[in-house]
């Protein structure tokens, strides 16, 4: 291979127009699976949802009655939607900070050299690989009013059994289910901690900074882009909470959707009900479009604040351009 190294810079520039066109065709040929797939399976369905959102369609009639923006007006004024929205935001306000701070804290601890670290990391990470369906079912077994372990623990403190899966408490159980997977963030944070320049940490120590101060002034600024990125990711994931909300209902059979405790009636559950319980396809679509817009906005914001650097991280061809 070394023979070609000398010759390599030359042929690149000589490419004529025909060659560039052939190159472009090859490029589009290679990315065509994704490009076609995205057009058909993402852009088209989203476009369809946008169209439905301007109609009053119930899925039965052959035509879709046009209603303009009235569905959107309802998204922001209807009591049901607003309460679902506020529940979802409360969920985010609780789950996101705990997940981010908790996983960072655990990552910092796991970054210390100690015996058994690999096993501890594996155990703490394990819940993150459990599929959402299974974690909902596991916690449902634990929080059952009559047979669950949660009430047995309460009994130790002489507290009467609580009906966890009905009423307001179902919301607490949903939070527990979501927090159980805190380990997913640990791995990202552990990797992030390796990027903190060791010289700077050492310099801070030389200057007499204690562990907290060097964390606050060296580590935190170094990993803050990754933390911000993670915050957005976790927020997006939490906003679309759906499976734990529906599967925690105490009645499990095929009718899960009709027995969701009102406390767990989060945004996506409401979307689902609009479509499949009330056949209000227009309303459901409007809610999806609003959700989609919020996510695009959030993604756009991290692009703006972090640039593309977080994404282009390890790419040599981009790193020179700063």
């Amino acid at each position: 291979m070394s023979t070609f190294q000398i010759a390599s810079p030359a042929p690149r520039r000589r490419g004529g127009r025909a060659r560039r066109i052939r190159g472009a065709l090859a490029f589009y040929g290679f990315i065509s699976p994704w490009l076609i797939g995205t057009l058909l399976l993402t852009a088209f369905p989203v476009g369809y949802a946008v169209y439905m959102s301007f109609t009053d369609w119930n899925g039965m009639t052959s035509f879709m009655p046009w209603v303009g923006l009235s569905n959107y007006q309802q998204v922001f004024t209807s009591g049901d939607t607003l309460s679902a929205l506020s529940k979802t935001l409360i969920l985010c306000a609780i789950v996101v900070p705990i997940t981010i701070a908790g996983s960072l804290f655990l990552a910092v601890l796991l970054n210390k050299r100690m015996r058994g670290r690999t096993i501890l990391r594996t155990l703490i990470y394990l819940p993150a690989v459990v599929p959402p369906v299974a974690s909902a079912l596991i916690w449902k077994v634990i929080f059952d009013k009559n047979s669950g372990a949660a009430n047995r623990i309460l009994a130790i403190f002489h507290v009467d059994p609580l009906d966890w899966l009905n009423g307001q408490l179902a919301f607490v159980v949903m939070i527990v289910v979501l927090l159980w997977g805190v380990g997913a963030g640990i791995i990202i944070n552990l990797a992030a901690l390796q990027t903190v320049p060791a010289e700077q940490l050492e310099a801070a120590k030389m200057d007499g900074a204690n562990a907290f101060r060097s964390f606050r002034h060296v580590t935190l600024p170094a990993i803050s882009p990754i933390l911000l990125f993670q915050t957005v990711l976790v927020t997006i994931t939490t906003l679309q909470t759906f499976v734990p909300a529906i599967l925690l209902s105490p009645i499990a059979g095929s009718n899960v959707y009709t027995n969701i405790p009102p406390a767990n009636d989060v945004y996506m559950v409401d979307v689902y009900e609009q479509y499949f319980d009330y056949s209000r396809y227009g309303m459901g679509s409007a809610m999806l479009v609003v959700f989609f817009a919020v996510i695009l906005l959030m993604t756009g914001l991290i692009f703006k604040f972090l640039g593309r650097s977080v994404f282009y991280a390890v790419d040599p061809s981009e790193s020179g351009k700063g």
């Binding site: 399976l41 993402t42 369905p45 989203v46 369809y48 997006i236 999806l288 989609f292 996510i295 993604t299």
Partner: peptide, 10 residues
Amino acid sequence: MVPPIVTLIP
């Protein structure tokens, strides 16, 4: 960044 649930129902 687009969650699959957004496109799933449409």
